[in-house]
Amino acid sequence: MSRESDVEAQQSHGSSACSQPHGSVTQSQGSSSQSQGISSSSTSTMPNSSQSSHSSSGTLSSLETVSTQELYSIPEDQEPEDQEPEEPTPAPWARLWALQDGFANLECVNDNYWFGRDKSCEYCFDEPLLKRTDKYRTYSKKHFRIFREVGPKNSYIAYIEDHSGNGTFVNTELVGKGKRRPLNNNSEIALSLSRNKVFVFFDLTVDDQSVYPKALRDEYIMSKTLGSGACGEVKLAFERKTCKKVAIKIISKRKFAIGSAREADPALNVETEIEILKKLNHPCIIKIKNFFDAEDYYIVLELMEGGELFDKVVGNKRLKEATCKLYFYQMLLAVQYLHENGIIHRDLKPENVLLSSQEEDCLIKITDFGHSKILGETSLMRTLCGTPTYLAPEVLVSVGTAGYNRAVDCWSLGVILFICLSGYPPFSEHRTQVSLKDQITSGKYNFIPEVWAEVSEKALDLVKKLLVVDPKARFTTEEALRHPWLQDEDMKRKFQDLLSEENESTALPQVL
Rank of each mutant, 00 (worst) to 15 (best):
G259A: 09
S15R: 13
G167H: 00
R181M: 00
E188V: 00
G30D: 06
Q36H: 15
S28L: 12
Y156G: 05
V170K: 13
R254K: 13
N184Q: 14
D208W: 02
S252E: 01
R117F: 00
L174Y: 03
A158P: 04
V66N: 04
G178T: 02
A264C: 07
Q100I: 15
T59H: 09
G165A: 01
S67N: 02
Q78L: 06
E271W: 11
S194R: 07
E161K: 14
D134Q: 07
W97D: 05
T68L: 02
P21H: 05
H22I: 12
G14Y: 05
V66K: 04
K224D: 01
E76L: 13
H22M: 12
P85T: 09
F256M: 02
S41E: 11
W93P: 02
A9R: 13
W114K: 14
T242K: 04
G116Q: 01
A98M: 12
Y123R: 15
S164Y: 01
A237T: 15
F103E: 09
R240W: 06
S15A: 09
V7T: 05
E173P: 01
E79N: 08
L216Y: 04
V206H: 09
W97G: 10
F103M: 05
K235L: 07
S19V: 14
Q69L: 05
Y123G: 14
V170H: 14
N186A: 06
P92L: 15
A17M: 10
T168A: 03
W114T: 07
P47Y: 11
S52Y: 05
T65V: 06
Q83E: 15
N196V: 04
S155V: 09
Q83C: 07
E86D: 05
D208N: 07
C121M: 08
I189A: 02
K255L: 02
P75G: 15
E81A: 06
S44A: 11
S57R: 03
L191W: 00
F147E: 00
S252M: 05
N185A: 11
S49H: 11
I258F: 04
E122A: 13
P92M: 13
Q83H: 13
K179S: 10
G167W: 02
G37A: 08
C243G: 14
C108F: 05
L129R: 08
V66S: 07
S57A: 05
Q10N: 12
R3A: 15
Q27A: 05
I160K: 02
A9H: 07
N171T: 09
R240A: 04
V150F: 01
H54E: 14
K244H: 09
N171S: 13
N269R: 14
A98V: 09
E84C: 02
S19Q: 15
R262L: 04
D207N: 10
Y113N: 14
V170F: 13
P75R: 09
E149C: 03
D82E: 09
D82S: 06
Q11Y: 15
K131L: 12
I38R: 10
K235W: 15
Q29A: 09
S52G: 14
F256E: 05
S39W: 12
Y72V: 06
S140L: 01
S140W: 08
S5L: 08
L216E: 03
N112D: 09
S49Q: 09
E81L: 11
E271I: 08
V246Y: 04
S194V: 09
P21G: 13
E149A: 07
G259E: 14
R181Q: 12
D77Q: 05
Q11G: 11
S187V: 05
S33G: 10
T172A: 04
F144S: 02
S187R: 06
E86T: 11
K245S: 09
T65S: 04
L191R: 11
P90N: 08
E233N: 11
L130D: 09
E127K: 12
F169N: 04
S57E: 13
G232C: 05
E188H: 06
N112H: 08
P266A: 09
E107A: 14
D6L: 05
V109M: 10
F199S: 03
P88T: 06
L268G: 05
P88Q: 07
A215W: 10
I248H: 12
K255S: 04
G165S: 13
A267H: 15
D265W: 00
G227W: 15
T45P: 09
S40I: 08
K235Y: 04
Y113D: 01
G30I: 15
Q11A: 14
P128W: 05
L174K: 07
T45S: 09
L216A: 10
L226I: 11
S73F: 13
H54L: 12
H22K: 10
D162G: 07
V270A: 07
H22G: 10
P21L: 09
P90G: 05
K245Y: 06
A267W: 10
K119D: 10
N110F: 14
L99A: 06
L226F: 15
E84V: 07
S19G: 11
E107P: 14
E233C: 15
P21A: 04
Y156K: 05
P213C: 01
D6E: 10
S44T: 12
E84F: 11
A17C: 06
A237S: 07
N154C: 01
S120V: 09
T26V: 07
C121L: 09
S155M: 15
F144R: 00
P128Y: 05
T138I: 07
T172L: 14
H13N: 08
D77P: 09
K197F: 11
N184F: 09
V234M: 01
